[in-house]
Design a protein around this nucleic acid. Structure first.
Length: 104
DNA sequence: AGGGCGGCAGTTG
DNA sequence: TCAACTGCCGCCC
């Protein structure tokens, strides 16, 4: 099981996000040249390579932490981000604009 | 500030 | 195989 081409494209994009940075589902969709933002979210959640593919570095376009279907849920997502220097308070990423990674 | 609809891949009946 | 529902969202009403 290695996922569909679409999922692999999403996961591959995730690996391009540097540590300590985050991106949004919208940016991900734009990078993949699709408007299927929800589909992107679904693909991210299906990621089977937990730590290797940093699915926790994907947040909402408004800076909110979003959701997390992996072990520990949102709590875990926040912990992982915190360990990289990305702090979350009140469900929001601090200095979101600065931490936001742009695919070039 | 809140709620609802929209576009798309995957999964399930 | 076909149709319908769901999902780590986003944007407009």
């Amino acid at each position: 099981m290695s996922g569909t081409p679409f999922q692999r494209a999403v996961w591959d994009a995730l690996k391009r996000i540097p540590e300590g940075r985050v991106t949004t589902y919208g940016d991900l969709a734009a990078y993949l040249e699709t408007r299927a933002v929800r589909a992107v979210g679904t693909a991210v959640g299906k990621n089977p390579y937990a730590p290797d593919v940093p699915c926790h570095r994907v947040v909402r376009s408004d800076g909110h932490i979003g959701s997390y279907s992996g072990e520990g849920g949102v709590k875990r997502k926040i912990s992982l981000l915190a360990s990289e220097g990305v702090h979350v308070s009140a469900g929001r990423v601090r200095d979101f604009a600065e931490k936001r990674h742009r695919f070039v």
